[in-house]
Structures are given as C-alpha cells and as structure tokens.
C-alpha cells in the first residue's frame, strides 16, 4: 500500500520538476522564471521527500529528509529574493504582456 502511495508522490513530484524546467525555458524574463523555479521545484522536492519519507527506516531519516527540504525551501526563497532584487537594481526591465 505505502509503495503505491510513494510511487504516486514521486511521480507527482516529477511532474512539478518537469513544469519547473519548462517554465525556466518558456517564461519570458528573469522574474517570471524565478516564479517557476522557486515554487514548482519546491513543491516537486516536497513531494519526493514525502514519498521517500514513507519508506524511511527510522524517524531520524524522516527528520533528515524534512531538514533537507526545509533547507532547500529557505535557500531558494532567499536566493529568489536576492536575484530579483539584484536584477531590479541593475535595471533589468520586466516583461509585460
């Protein structure tokens, strides 16, 4: 049973990673690409982590997986802000429809 749930979560995670990459390639400027990358990939990693946590052999492993996810969450949110702020400082125009 948990194997199937893990399978499902991992596959769902893969879809988000795919969408993140597609967004990175398709979106028109650095700001919109940041949206795709930070949000989609973090959900993707969250789902992968959740799927793997179901198979974990101990609570310490669950904790470590969670820690890794939180770390990536914190890192990519702060980095997204720093890149966006730096881009604005350099006067990179935002794409408008």
């Amino acid at each position: 049973m948990t194997e199937y749930l893990t399978m499902f979560l991992l596959l769902a995670g893969a879809v988000f990673f795919l969408a993140g990459t597609v967004g990175l390639l398709r979106f028109p400027d650095v700001y919109t690409r940041l949206h795709a990358l930070t949000k989609a990939d973090n959900v993707g990693l969250g789902l992968v982590v959740a799927g793997l946590a179901l198979q974990a052999e101990s609570w310490a492993v669950v904790g470590k997986l969670l820690l890794i996810w939180l770390l990536v969450l914190l890192a990519s949110a702060s980095v997204a802000h720093l890149v966006a702020a730096a881009a604005r400082q350099r006067g990179i125009k935002l794409w408008k429809r």
Binding site: G20, Y31, L94, K96, R97
Partner: peptide, 19 residues
C-alpha cells in the same frame, strides 16, 4: 502556488501578465 505556476508554465498560451 506550485500547482498554479506549473499549470501556467505548461499551458500552451502561457497565461501570464506580470506586474
């Protein structure tokens, strides 16, 4: 948020209008 941006990225017409 993730699902929303994923949908927009995969959508053929790219439904975004940044501001």
């Amino acid at each position: 948020g993730g699902a929303d941006v994923a949908r927009r990225a995969l959508h053929p017409r790219l439904p975004i209008s940044p501001d």
